[in-house]
């Protein structure tokens, strides 16, 4: 058997309940249990989080930077997507 550095996993941490999980980094581990332990040891030594998500890096689906224009063009021609586009009657409040 050739030497292995084990599979690569991506680590997401929620700093406290109610907040989104944010990517913290990666760990190497052979299985879920080891990945969780390594993520805990590597990324939460100082109260950085209360919950961890892990997934194998190979299962991440990412957009291609070349498609940036197509996917993320701000569509400035569609200004009706912004609230400032609309004309409100004089004196309207809380809207």
């Amino acid at each position: 058997m050739t030497d292995t550095q084990l599979d690569l996993w991506e680590v997401f941490i929620q700093s406290k309940s109610g907040l989104p999980y944010i990517h913290a980094g990666s760990v190497h581990a052979s299985d879920m249990k080891m990945a969780l332990q390594n993520a805990r040891d590597t990324y939460t030594r100082r109260g950085e989080g209360t919950s961890i998500w892990l997934l194998p890096s190979k299962h991440i689906v990412a957009s291609n930077p070349d498609d940036k224009e197509m996917l993320f063009d701000p569509s400035n021609d569609k200004i009706y997507r912004h609230p400032t586009f609309y004309v409100m009657p004089e004196g309207a409040t809380h809207i």
Binding site: D3, T4, L6, A29, S30, D31, M32, M34, P56, H59
Partner: peptide
């Protein structure tokens, strides 16, 4: 240790 971890992975359902 790494070899054992890989072998263990194959014997359990902990891999993805």
């Amino acid at each position: 240790v790494r070899e054992a971890a890989e072998a263990h992975k194959l014997k359990t359902n902990l891999s993805v």
